[in-house]
Design a protein around this nucleic acid. Sequence first.
RNA 1: GCGGGGGUUGCCGAGUGGAAAAGGCGCAGGGCUUAAGACCCUGUCCCGAAGGGGUCCGCGGGUUCGAAUCCCGCCCCCCGCACCA
Length: 905
Amino acid sequence: MFKEIEEKWQRAWEDAKIFEADPDGRPKFFLTIPYPYLNGNLHAGHTRTFTIGDAFARYMRMKGYNVLFPLGFHVTGTPIIGLAELIEKRDERTIQVYTKFHDVPLQDLLGLTSPERIVEYFAKEALIALKKIGYSIDWRRKFTTMDPAYQKFIEWQYWRLKELGLIERGSHPVRYCPNDQNPVEDHDLLMGEDASIVEFTIIKFRLEGSDLIFPCATLRPETIFGVTNIWLKPAKYVIARVDGEKWIVSKEAFEKLRYMDRNVELIGEVDGREFIGKNVVVPLVERLVPILPAEFVDLDNATGVVMSVPAHAPYDFVALRDLGSKIEPIVIISSGNRDIPAKEIVEELKIKDQNDPELEKATKMLYKREYHTGVMLENTGKFAGMKVSEAKDKVEKELRDLKLGDVFYEFSDKPVVCRCGSKCVVKVVRDQWFLRYSDEQWKSKVLEHLESMTIIPDYYKEEFRNKILWLKDKACARRKGLGTRIPWDKEWLIESLSDSTIYMCYYILAKFVNSGQIKAENITNEFLDYVILGKGSLELAKNSGLSEELIERIRNEFRYWYPVDLRSSGKDLVANHLLFYLFHHVAIFDKELWPRAIAVNGYVSLEGQKMSKSKGPLLTMKKALELYGADVTRLYILHSAEYDSDADWKSKEIEGLAANLERFYNLVREYYLKEPSDITTLDRWLISRFNRAVKEVRDAMDKLQTRRAVNFAFFEIMNLVRWYLRRGGKNLSLILDDWIKLLAPFAPHICEELWHLKHSTFVSLEKYPEFDAAKIDEEAERAEKYLEQLLEDIKEVMKFVENAKIVYIYPAEEWKCKALEIANEKGLSEAMKWLSAQGIDKSEISSFAKRFKNAELIPNERKRIEENIEFLEKELQVKVSLDSSALPIEKKRTAMPGKPAIFVT
RNA sequence: GCGGGGGUUGCCGAGUGGAAAAGGCGCAGGGCUUAAGACCCUGUCCCGAAGGGGUCCGCGGGUUCGAAUCCCGCCCCCCGCACCA
């Protein structure tokens, strides 16, 4: 184990401050990774993303860049508060998960009953782990998102967004527990985790000669043209005043409407049966249709009032059939059907009556088909000819514009039950603050910028494109949780994903905050406008109370470091954080400060199982380091999967790797200090092949392909070394300086230790090995390859000979080499002519012609074999001879240049 | 459903027109060792008493002298679809 070595170099790096980055004359590289959320210990997922970041930071540093690689901690939001409550309540599962999977000792855990303590504890633990794994982070810039200075920065950002008109008020639906009077998150649910909020369209049917409205709820507003009647359940309904209108709805619907930010008032109860047979007016179509009774109507779904489109809704068709009604369905959509679509499908599925469970399936099938392939028929007015998918939105909009339509939110699955046991409802939260991500101009700016960015892997660019188009307005305010208050509306907290969008620029301030040069009260909007955006003026910025000199210095540092050159992140953040990261940068900064590149890596699972912070299993970074140490963990996670695919952590594999790394360590120690003696072909082969590996490693790293990089830098070279030593190589030290450097970004501690056997500088700051075409030695490579092939061929032959005693090797005769040369230059027929002229036996010539395709000229082939007889004998454990007299003629004939005849006795 | 990714030899996983197909893991045999482990070597689709032959990359077609790689159709798997970090 390398624990002592690791600690030693971590201390040395820290003492020498080699990762503290400040502006200088070198080109800069600003690399960030997402700050971790501290509701638990860092785990294998963090380990992966962060280690990729660190390996790249170290690589770029060794390539000569001034690398800034900082990290802070994220604590805003609700989970930390939730966790504190659970610990306070001594929730059994939480205690189990945190002691067992997060490796928190019980007595420590029980004390974490407030958000502050949780933050303090996990921040401390995280820092320990991050230092123990040897990340090259500039820790002078560490912060947490509840720091007063950071909060001032967030407030500034929100003022800027408001000034830009990108924040506005609105309302939106949330899952809500009436008992707790709070929005409910997934983990707060007993039932209904999969339920989503569905938006029904309400279409208002007015009772003939009355002001009573029957609000029919539907997911298919475009079918309004096919309405033949409406359905009521023969049961109790209520009359309610809703935003000034008199609505007939189910009792359940009335209760739900009360949460939908409407003005509702109960007027009285009424029996649905009273209305049966009366007529209502179909909006838009202005047709009178009757109210009919139906048992399938669910009073607890939407309004409890349903419109009937028997041609396109199997339920309606069957209900009419059950009633024995003579009403004719009106077909308004064509999707390749001959008859009435609902009739076709009902007959196909042999549906008996409206209580048949198959009806659900029929409905889905038909809806799907018509939505995707259906076209509106002539009887749908101006919508005729439109695709159903298009008409749906258009009809809905028209109804809404004419106040004939409305929305009703409902869960897709029921029931949805809160942990407290009450049924959840959909609540429409009003006066909510929204980020206007749907803004067309904003979007197109982001889209345009995306095209100029580097996205790794590249197919994620398409994914980003789609997600940008798809992004809608986002509610950015919360009532509950940790966070910064919206500066102009202190009732609301800024939601936690919305406060982590452009914080990378805060790292530049954080250094000054942590050193005490800036206090929170100095961070005024004018100050930030000036140092970050270069807007306003130095005079205004000086109102912050800071000196001109300091302000200018910060301004200059900001200009030096920004923009972010690479943000390396897990793929879980693509559809949220990384998107917001782009949007906010594009909105707030000038073009030259927009992010340059984003890299996205995959997940980590554990022995095939998905990790879960709240349920387990989980492998913490701390535990991994305890078990395997830093370098093994790093090398393993970098090698376990290529950046974009998911990795599976297998303890058996990592143990194997530990052994490999130890071998490397011992190998280097054994050879590093030996002075190289005479350089042989074999040495030139090693240097040549090593050089090729260097090229591969650099190429892989430039694309962040850490798996490929480690594969070459470690395993491939290890294999070269194996062959080299097997062949009796003595001068391994020829490549060791470079090999150590090559591996330094991946396993920095061991490399540092080994490097210091010979040098007094830090390998972490050395120049990364470069590919040198001059060191490629084709001839040496061919010579080794020849020997390898020869050995393999002999073994192949020996398989068929029991108790082999002597191996005779017979290289091709001189005339064959000459003939091959001619054949290569002038073609086979010239070679044949030449052979005849030499008076070579005819059967020999034809044998040559048959085989010449597989032949290759090896310079000094015989000598090559002679020199290596000893090696071959050692490998084969038999005598090897070049004596040609023992070979039968027909055997000799098979000898070709590069492929000698082999004869075993 | 929409969008993105993917299906390769026991497993993981490279490989985008010409290699039974890198590397790792596992397994088997041998060497080293008092022994085990580690380490080193060999083998690991099938056949073969001479370095050879056959079969193979989700399924079915096609293009090509030649396909895991290109085209068409089909099947299957993973991820995201939000206000949650």
